[in-house]
Design a protein around this nucleic acid. Sequence first.
DNA 1: CAAGCTCGTTCAATCGTTTGACCGACAGTA
DNA 2: TACTGTCGGTCAAACGATTGAACGAGCTTG
Lengths: 343, 343
Amino acid sequence: MTGRRGTRVTLVDVARLAGVDKAIVSRVVNEDPNLVIRPDTRERVVEAIANLGYRPNSAARSLRTAKAGTLGLVIPDFANPVYAEIITGAESAALAQGHVLVTGSSTGDNSSMDRYLDLLGQGRVDGLMLASPTTPREQQKLESLNLPWMMVNRRDTGDHHRFVILNDAQAAKLAVEHLLALGHEKIVHVAGPFGADTARRRATGYRQAMKHAGLDVRAESIARGDYTPGGGADAMAELLRGGLDVATAVFVANVAMAVGVLDTLRRRGLRVPEDVSVVAVHDLPLAEHLVPALTTVRMPLQQLGARAVELLLASSPEDEVAEVVDTAIELVYRESTAPVSNG
Amino acid sequence: MTGRRGTRVTLVDVARLAGVDKAIVSRVVNEDPNLVIRPDTRERVVEAIANLGYRPNSAARSLRTAKAGTLGLVIPDFANPVYAEIITGAESAALAQGHVLVTGSSTGDNSSMDRYLDLLGQGRVDGLMLASPTTPREQQKLESLNLPWMMVNRRDTGDHHRFVILNDAQAAKLAVEHLLALGHEKIVHVAGPFGADTARRRATGYRQAMKHAGLDVRAESIARGDYTPGGGADAMAELLRGGLDVATAVFVANVAMAVGVLDTLRRRGLRVPEDVSVVAVHDLPLAEHLVPALTTVRMPLQQLGARAVELLLASSPEDEVAEVVDTAIELVYRESTAPVSNG
DNA sequence: CAAGCTCGTTCAATCGTTTGACCGACAGTA
DNA sequence: TACTGTCGGTCAAACGATTGAACGAGCTTG
């Protein structure tokens, strides 16, 4: 009950109070299955632990077992809600397996990724998940840490295949099919940056879905943005220059760019959804508060994070890991899409 | 250069290769100021470290020094951009002091806070920052961990004063003064929940600023929401019932509620800013993409996080810490506020 | 030349747990 | 009686780094 402040309580203290060897205490604490012990002895130990408020010292434990009980996750930016979702999923999966999640951002100076690799590469984590872009040099360093690691939501990995991604092509397909079902045929695409493989997969999915519907995709039907509102606005402007007047719907690669797309359309006097329908990937809280509320494709980002943790904990550094999560990808129909107008 | 995969490199390995005792290596690694060593010896050691790719084992180090090199931060929700900012600030401050930040969310089941206190209370962190609401029982548990800890952005602490908060009253004052300068006099307030002390401080600031301007605040001029868009929408509806027709401006306690406020106003056919001006606290990225772009008061959330880390590292568990961060609080004038109309 | 000092380095205890090896007591068996 | 097994524990060696103390060699000083 007391838990004496100011003094660290150790195994020996507990052992002394219970009148047994510290080995017993350790085995009781860890619920060692092949420990044979008399019920009353166990009782004494348990009581002593409670009385002293004993908590195992994790440093000592880590030292002995060579396990940290910790996983690392590196993301580009905490302010990006996409990563917030991934973190949330990863955190609860980690917790469920008795691990603590350390999340770091590699924002700003590009040295901070390095910094993290240094700080984390000292037995501080049992595995590492990377949702940030990584240079080949960083991947090399990563290899030298002798840790299980994997990419999350990207697969630009070197020799090994170690990644979990979402089925972006499927998401694109759902979006395009939604537009098709509404009668649209002139559908253009605001794609993400070349560098991001999520963007490439979504663009591919768009092409495939269009092709499958017997519609052709010209080069001018796709404009590239950088996944930010500004980039989306510019890309939309580019599409308009190219003659969007014949297009009635836009498939946008993410919600952030959709914000810019809506802006550009409004500025040009085009009404959404009366004149143009807009659908984007990722169902973030933001989407439903835009004007008009954005139709989106919900992506299982939390599951992505959770799955990354599970795979990481189940694999050794040499294993190849490649998985595509595609459960629960679905269209969320809001106000920004509508049947094609007969104008 | 090589860094032999598969084998842990320890101090002894380095010492052997350099032909010195491991004590020397340790002192070189830690840049022990009172180490006297011949330049060539040091050279040999440094080389050996590089050749073997040695990295100190953090568990062993922690065990010996009784320092984890880690700080904990518990927030309610990763998806809330307010906390994203706090994390970002805290992270970089922690990194600057050679510490790793472990951020956990206490979302969902209310047992997860407990879970974290258990996991972190084993010498895993050197200090703890709490941005989540905590029950008295949790605070008690916290005390028993014998760790430096503090509340961030809230001050509902028990006996001790251990918190860093922002100058919310000042923020409210800026917002109200902005409205006053635009000629508004009938200014109402959508406040946050009673439970949140940030909400109380903002409400107080609103009252004071009004009083100072010689304007009176009636009970019907304030409605309470729960810091979410839905809550904001309801609160705004309540104010309208109370007869907003005579009010020309709304001061909203946070951006999330402002989203709902804008919604309600639009639904009632009130134009912003022509009929009603709206200003909210917190300058989140979202604000500038709303329609109309929201006028806000920028709060130094990153500095709040950074300051929390600094104070935490500089204090012992018994110290009282109470600080109000009020640098860089400023008004960001966008489209949702305008001079009062003469209608 | 003995005593003392400085320089450069080595020794060894310690942090708190985990875990394989070992051991005494007692019961059952031949 | 001697032997073999279980039961219930104890012992002690790691894990890898830190750090105060000790130590030998060489130099200075009186």
